[in-house]
Amino acid sequence: MSIATRSLPRAIGAHAILLTYTAIALFPVILVIMNSFKSRAGIFGAPLTPPAPKTFDLIGYTTVIGQGDFIHYFQNSLVVTVGSLFFVLLFGAMAAFALSEYRFRGNTLMGLYLALGIMIPIRLATVAILQLMVASGLVNTLTALILVYTAQGLPLAVFILSEFMKQVSDDLKNAGRIDGLSEYTIFFRLVVPLVRPSMATVAVFTMIPIWNDLWFPLILAPSEETKTVTLGAQLFLGQFVTNWNAILAALSLAILPVLVLYVIFSRQLIRGITSGAVK
């Protein structure tokens, strides 16, 4: 059908290109993880071979676990990501329901107002956000990060979820109304369960930038107690520029949780993108 599968040579060509690109995409990740299990001599002597009994060494991991407070950073990242995700999904779904279900004056305008944040990055507001957080005493708290990420995630969440909520059958909701359910019950008991798959999609889209963000943790919460994994890894890597074992181990530790989550959720993510919700 497509340009690539008319005949056997074409199929081979397609696979060759895709395989080459897959190798380019995965090579750095594999290289880092592979070398994190090697001794210093192994890392420099034969960087491209997998760890052999002779070069196998966990010194990098013991350094990282002994030096950096990674478990604590990890907890912070988890609290921030899960907290923001909860509020983005709850508030986003509620607003999306209001926009897609009811016709009221200013509906379109409100939709546009909320959609503004999809295109204009919240980062540009940093100067005033920092002043706001200083004024309200929230600097160096995880609450500050959760608030910022909630605001950052809401526009896209509202946009995607209201597209999906338009597809929920009106008959079902009206049946609920005839049975005397309140609007709140209709939303929480009827609509939310029906749009759960799209909420999972939104969750994945929201989660990745929050987990990976460096800018706001660096500016709003750089203290030792509130460091996230991304910021912790950045500072740790800066300190250990010459300790290659520790750097490679720290990188691998930062890659693995994201990679595991991705492998679990990748079908959800890809289905979300390809279902055409994000146009």
């Binding site: 507001a125 100067v127 002043q131 706001l132 950052q152």
Partner: peptide, 21 residues
């Protein structure tokens, strides 16, 4: 009630600081 939380957080943390900046 459905709109308030999202609009409040979004306005307070994003739009007002953006205008402030």
């Amino acid at each position: 009630v459905f709109l308030a939380p999202a609009v409040l957080v979004y306005t307070a943390i994003m739009i007002l600081p953006l205008a402030g900046t």
